Simulated scan of single mutants.
Amino acid sequence: MSLAATPAFPPLLDGRAVAGDPFAAARDAARVGADPGLVLFDPSAEDMDVALLLAPEVPLEEAAAMLPLAGVALQNALGALGPSELPVHLDWDGTVRVNGGRCGRVRAAIPATRPGAVPDWLVIGAALRVRPRSDDGGATPEDTALHAEGCGDIAPLDLVETWARHALLWIHRWEEEGIAPLHRDWTALAHGLGGPIRAGGHEGTFLGLDERLGCLVKTGSGTRLVPLTTLLEET
C-alpha cells in the first residue's frame, strides 16, 4: 500500500525531491545555508533513501545522538508499515538489519567542528534496500531486502514519509526528556550485544553504550570507549 504519490511531511519539515543521492544533496544544501527541516528524497529511487537537515543547538558530543536517533526512527517506521513480527535491529556503526540480514544504514554528516563546539549544521540520512538485487538470495546471504522479508507492499516513499515523521517525534522527545529514552530504545534494538565488535580501531566484546551512546568495547587490555562522534562524517 502506498501512502501517497508524493510524501506529505509535518509543517516543520520541507520535503523536496532530488535526482540522485539525497544525503549528498543535503550536505550541499547545508553548505549554502539551507534552512533546517529540509527533507530530501529521490522519488524515482527503487530503494528508500532520505536525508534531513538539522541545525543543532547543543555541542557536537550531544548532537551526535541524532545518528542513533535516525536508526530508532527507521525501526519505528518499519514497525508502523511492516508486519508486526518483523525483526529489525541496529548495529552501532549505523548498519540496519532486518531478520538478521544487512538491509540498510543510517549516517550523519557535519561541517568541520571543534570538540565542544556547536556544529553549524548536521545532516542525518536513512537508507533501506526495498527490492532484492537478484533472484539468487544465496549469492549474498548476509544481505537482504524488504521485499524478501515479507514486506512486498511497502514502497520507498511510504518509508520516506513515515521515517521523517518518526525522526521529528524523536527529536522533540530528545529535547524534552533528554537522552535516556533514546538510550533505552536503541539498546533494545542493538545487534550483537555481548558479541564480537570492531569499533574505533578496537576489537573485543560489545558491552553496550555509555551515557552519550558511545560504544563500550571490552578488550584484552580493558574496556575502551569509542565516542559516537567518531561515526560522524566531516565535510
Score class of each variant (00 low, 15 high):
Glu46Val: 02
Asp47Met: 02
Asp47Asn: 14
Asp47Cys: 02
Val50Glu: 10
Val50Phe: 09
Ala51Thr: 07
Ala51Asp: 10
Ala51Cys: 07
Leu53Asp: 02
Leu54Thr: 13
Leu54Cys: 14
Leu54Trp: 14
Pro56Phe: 13
Val58Arg: 15
Glu62Ser: 13
Glu62Trp: 06
Met66Ala: 14
Leu67Asn: 08
Ala70His: 10
Gly71Asn: 05
Val72Pro: 08
Leu74Ile: 05
Leu74Lys: 01
Gln75Glu: 14
Asn76Ser: 12
Asn76Trp: 11
Leu78Phe: 09
Leu78Val: 07
Gly79Ile: 04
Ala80Arg: 14
Gly82Cys: 08
Gly82Thr: 05
Pro83Trp: 10
Glu85Val: 04
Val88Ile: 09
His89Ala: 13
His89Arg: 14
His89Cys: 03
Leu90Ile: 04
Leu90Gly: 07
Asp91Arg: 15
Asp91Phe: 08
Asp91Glu: 14
Trp92Pro: 11
Trp92Met: 04
Asp93Leu: 07
Asp93Ser: 13
Val98Glu: 07
Asn99Asp: 14
Gly100Met: 05
Arg102Leu: 12
Arg102Ile: 06
Cys103Ser: 13
Gly104Ile: 06
Arg105Ser: 11
Arg105Lys: 12
Val106Thr: 09
Val106Tyr: 04
Ala109Met: 02
Ala109Asn: 02
Ala109Ile: 01
Pro111Met: 06
Pro111Lys: 09
Arg114Pro: 06
Arg114Lys: 13
Arg114Ser: 11
Pro115Gly: 02
Pro115Val: 03
Gly116Lys: 01
Ala117Thr: 09
Ala117Tyr: 09
Ala117Trp: 09
Val118Ile: 15
Val118Glu: 08
Asp120Leu: 10
Leu122Phe: 07
Val123His: 04
Val123Asp: 04
Val123Arg: 03
Ile124Val: 15
Gly125Thr: 01
Ala127His: 13
Ala127Ile: 03
Val130Ala: 05
Val130Trp: 10
Arg131Leu: 04
Pro132Val: 00
Pro132His: 00
Pro132Trp: 00
Arg133Gly: 15
Arg133Asn: 07
Ser134Tyr: 01
Ser134Glu: 03
Gly137Asn: 01
Ala139Ile: 05
Ala139Glu: 12
Ala139Phe: 10
Thr140Asp: 13
Thr140Phe: 14
Pro141Ile: 03
Glu142Cys: 01
Glu142Tyr: 10
Glu142Lys: 06
Asp143His: 11
Asp143Glu: 14
Asp143Gln: 14
Thr144Phe: 01
Gly150Tyr: 04
Gly150Lys: 03
Cys151Asn: 06
Gly152Gln: 12
Gly152Ile: 02
Ile154Asp: 10
Ile154Pro: 12
Ala155Val: 10
Asp158Ser: 08
Val160Ala: 12
Val160Lys: 02
Glu161Leu: 03
Glu161Val: 05
Glu161Tyr: 01
Glu161Ser: 14
Thr162Lys: 06
Trp163Glu: 11
Trp163Val: 13
Ala164Met: 14
Ala164Asn: 13
Arg165Lys: 15
His166Lys: 12
Leu168Lys: 03
Leu168Thr: 04
Trp174Pro: 01
Trp174Tyr: 15
Trp174Thr: 03
Glu177Gly: 00
Glu177Tyr: 06
Glu177Ala: 13
Glu177Trp: 04
Gly178Ala: 05
Gly178Ile: 04
Gly178Cys: 09
Ala180Asp: 12
Ala180His: 09
Pro181Gln: 07
Leu182Gln: 06
Leu182Thr: 06
His183Phe: 01
His183Ser: 05
